[in-house]
Design a protein around this nucleic acid. Structure first.
Lengths: 163, 163
DNA sequence: TATTGTTATACTCTATAACTATA
DNA sequence: TATAGTTATAGAGTATAACAATA
């Protein structure tokens, strides 16, 4: 994307006038990297996410766990870890906190005495239903400069990398 | 993207057979979110990045700083912070470490006695030149399931979110 | 008064080793 | 022996407040 040729990018841009201070640096090499751009985009979305989910008391990981449990009742910690690519020790306190808040319930696993099946409580069901709607809304706003078609394309391309 | 209707996604998928253990959970709601996908994709690329950059002793942030200085000689810490969206206190040790390694040099700023202009040393120039080539290579591999055209589209769409 | 760079510090996130109880 | 869940802990990464030197 950033060839040696000095071409004006899509956004309107002054030719790097020697202003007093705080002039922007040439970051075209970094802006040609998938990793850099994915991180920057995620940073924006996650900031909006954090703001909008604060009223629900949910961080991204909390939302992911509750949403997963809403569509996979009785899932185990191990399954959540595998799906979300997080380590078991880092899920323990998280699940305990959601339990303390009365959003989820731990029940003995039907087939495996070691495992614990996780289930949403009615309060958890209600919360995640509202939160999921809020997230869809916030995602639409955070990607408001993309058309529906472009947003679908973006997601499809991102999944080609990690799925 | 994930409507209540149970429709088979694009990828071939068995109907969630009740296997012994470790079955995959239904994550279609999360997989319909830009934030979730951007983070998952970034995680993959950054893992490859960490592996390949280890021989150079460079983390992502180190690479970003050196690459920026390569194309913006004499840039200040403040400018690096603005461009990379990091906080000044978190750049101090990083710049000090690159200085200790003899990769960059701090020179008094020509117009501002408070600021310090950062410059690559010859060793830093050599290192970042090799590292940039390695990163281009690693990026191509990490996104090998994308065509060149798709990769450009992906980056363009990501930039529409954060730029 | 405002800004650059810095110190100290705290909080979150992520990672590893080791234990227990079940299988 | 292997796995699910847990504990304790260490290391990154990221955040705020406060200070000195200069503008």
């Amino acid at each position: 994307m950033p060839p040696p040729t000095k071409k004006t990018p899509a956004t309107t841009e002054a030719p790097a006038a020697p202003s007093a201070r705080a002039e922007r640096l040439d970051a075209r090499v970094l802006e040609g990297l998938v990793g850099y751009n994915a991180r920057r985009a995620w940073l924006i979305v996650s900031t909006v996410f954090a703001d909008r989910m604060a009223p629900y008391g949910l961080k991204q990981i909390d939302f992911s766990v509750l949403s997963l449990l809403a569509h996979n009742p009785g899932a185990t910690s191990r399954q959540l870890c595998n799906t979300l690519d997080i380590l078991p020790p880092n899920l323990v306190n998280l699940v305990a906190a959601l339990d303390s808040r009365g959003l989820i319930e731990r029940r003995p696993h039907p087939h495996d005495g070691r495992a614990v099946g996780l289930h949403l409580t009615p309060a958890g069901e209600t919360l995640i239903r509202e939160a999921e709607q809020a997230v869809v809304q916030l995602e639409t706003e955070a990607s408001s400069r993309l058309s529906t078609r472009e947003r679908e394309t973006l997601i499809k391309l991102l999944q080609k990398i990690y799925l």
